[in-house]
Amino acid sequence: MWQRLTEGVRIESIGTETNLPDPLGELARCHQCGQCAGVCPSQKHGGIKPADTMVKLHLSLLQPNAPELWLCAMCNSCTERCQLGVSPSDRIQEMRGRATLAGHCPKSFQEEAKLFMRTGLAFPNSGLTKKLRKELDLDELASDAQTLNELAALVKATTLGRVPLER
């Protein structure tokens, strides 16, 4: 497997900007037993391959624009299954963060982020929402100005405030 994954890859690419910090030593600890691959529901359908992803991360071969990063459903099966205490889903999440800052976040998540920053919610308070809530005798959804101001301050102070978002 090692040979197959590294085939055609120049050795100089190791240790480049795709290098992921590994304070817990997880990338080195993964010994490619494949338990994560066995429980990953996405891999079965042509999605992400967590064991391959781990070895690519260890060798700094995973590019931030790799589409498979976003084919993880974040079900955390891989992390739960790993008998060595490695957390592939956490590492995938970190790589998604780096991909996002490099401008490679899928459009649907970008739209969600914009809505969150504008309204405080991740789903729109649509006309249908208002109709359903009225029919069910529920109060109208409203976000107050103070909440939105506080959220804006938090976004500005953290990474989401620096994420490049398409118009």
């Binding site: 459903a73 974040m74 649907s108 998540f109 982020a113």
Partner: peptide, 14 residues
């Protein structure tokens, strides 16, 4: 506000 759901939003900015 939104909890910054653990699939998309949180991945973008932990």
């Amino acid at each position: 506000t939104c909890c910054v759901e653990p699939i998309g939003l949180r991945s973008m900015a932990a």
